[in-house]
């Protein structure tokens, strides 16, 4: 998704989501206390430990905002998998963030049905009003990351936009400033 910065737009500050800042600190386990109990409960639903992998990764992302390599290693230990295996799974699914993202992670559907209803204009409007500069980059204040996604499954409500876990239907370029204001 990440593309080189478009000319004319202010070059974004990448340091706000620099993964190296997180690597130096020792890993604080995600699965302690309530999260651990939640995982233990999940494990009762499946005949194998491996089946709890996707749910476990969702817990990681909810707790940490992204899935770091340390978290992958932690999950692999808990589920009797190897870190390489977990990484293979994480990289298959597009919804797990492999690096930190903005406080508001904004996904815009641009697949054909939304595309022919003007989704590109919504993307442009979002990029302009969030100041992220380009797709996949995070705004200087660390608040926003905007990406295009493939079909969000709400084609009749073009253009659907997902902000973190919230689903907003029928977004037009004009509605974008209001939506962003509501977040603040």
């Amino acid at each position: 998704m990440t593309k080189p910065s478009v000319g004319g737009l202010e070059s974004p500050d990448l340091s706000s989501h620099d993964a190296t800042a997180h690597e130096s600190a020792p890993h604080v386990p995600v699965f302690a206390g309530a999260a651990r109990e939640e995982l233990d409960q999940l494990l009762t639903r499946y005949p194998t430990k491996m089946a709890a992998l996707l749910p476990a990764l969702w817990i990681v992302q909810r707790e940490r905002g992204w899935v770091s390599e340390d978290s992958m290693a932690e999950v692999s230990d808990l589920l009797d998998l190897t870190p390489a295996y977990v990484k293979g799974v994480v990289t298959f699914y597009t919804m797990y963030h492999q690096h930190p993202v903005g406080k508001y992670f904004i996904q815009v559907c641009t697949t054909s049905p939304c595309g022919i209803c003007g989704a590109e204009e919504v993307v442009k409007s979002l990029l302009r009003h969030t100041g992220t500069g380009d797709l996949g980059l995070t705004s200087r204040d660390g608040k926003f990351t905007v990406i295009e996604v493939e079909c969000l499954g709400a084609c009749g409500f073009a253009t659907p936009v997902m902000i973190n876990e919230e689903f907003i239907e029928s977004v037009t370029p004009e509605k974008v400033p209001g939506i962003l204001e509501d977040l603040a």
Binding site: S112, C151, G153, C155
Partner: peptide, 11 residues
């Protein structure tokens, strides 16, 4: 896992 572009009935 309704993901077929154009489909949102199951949703």
């Amino acid at each position: 896992d309704e993901s077929e572009p154009g489909t949102f009935k199951d949703r």
